[in-house]
Design a protein around this nucleic acid. Sequence first.
DNA 1: CATAGAGTGTTACTAAATAACATGTCAAGG
DNA 2: CCTTGACATGTTATTTAGTAACACTCTATG
Lengths: 177, 177
Amino acid sequence: MSRPLPPPEDVPDVPVFARHDHARCAEGALAAAEAMAAAAGLRLTPVRRRTLEILLESHRAMGAYEVLERLAAEGFGRQPPVAYRALDFLVEQGFAHRIRRLNAFAACTRPGTDHQPVFLICRGCNAVAEAPGAEARAAVEAAATAVGFRVERASLEAAGLCPACAGAAAASSDAVR
Amino acid sequence: MSRPLPPPEDVPDVPVFARHDHARCAEGALAAAEAMAAAAGLRLTPVRRRTLEILLESHRAMGAYEVLERLAAEGFGRQPPVAYRALDFLVEQGFAHRIRRLNAFAACTRPGTDHQPVFLICRGCNAVAEAPGAEARAAVEAAATAVGFRVERASLEAAGLCPACAGAAAASSDAVR
DNA sequence: CATAGAGTGTTACTAAATAACATGTCAAGG
DNA sequence: CCTTGACATGTTATTTAGTAACACTCTATG
């Protein structure tokens, strides 16, 4: 059974690129995922839960094999499907995202809130943030509709520099001058 | 040497999802690539040229290994770097695009024209079309700027159904009724 | 308490990508 | 003319991603 339930509205909009209380941020996301899974009658089993926790440790995207290594070290299965199944579950439920540019996965920073983010991938520190994507998605939709294409899914990913890394880059190029 | 040159303006805007004279479409793209490479002092060598021709045969995205198989059969090298190097060259020069969602490559339908397309990937026929992406990119840029992120590159990819496949799907679901 | 379905684990394999190194080609400068 | 260096092509070998297929276990339900 999987009865639809309004998502919790108390998930704070965490500014990933800003300093923040990460422990609290991760706990919140985990709690939200737990609540949603329970409400939907889905099982956030040990592997799945642990996988989410691992992703939540940082705001980086992690490869499936990197996750697998961690899981294996903690006594879970050591074969690829173990990681892929857990990750696929998390992605399906919206607790994590697949970052196609990196062939990797990142925890969702706002689980439960209905969002279609643009992913911002910093090439300096590898952080992945989610920016509101409604406008961008509307524009993609419009461009597609204009040629008769029916969009089912869209991935909007931007690579570049986060504020901190851009600042650092500017500072070091100053130093050279 | 690599002097910048204004791109040729005579590349027709081919509607990939519409019926079109594909031989002419492919020839045009190849000619444009040749002209651009010559103008920029770059070498469109046999492997590179052949790789582009292979991609141009269809409007599908092809995996590097699929391309490699073809190249090997024609007497070129049979190891992955052969294909990857040619493909990377084509992508760098804007003669082809990397489709991240598919881990694959597609020939550019409008080489030389300065474009930042949205890719439309049909799950029915695997065709990949390019739709104008200026608005969508502006929206992504705006969303990024709002959180202080500096965008360097963005991939905008939509998966769904092209007009023909959407029509076919509708027809078959009619048939069931 | 039987049993179907979901979940977890395995083996085995295919596909994608890159590192590191050897060889060939060709144009520019001595 | 011949050397030299840059670029291109080829190789071997390895890493990283992803999936198919099958066996076992647990658990909710009739």
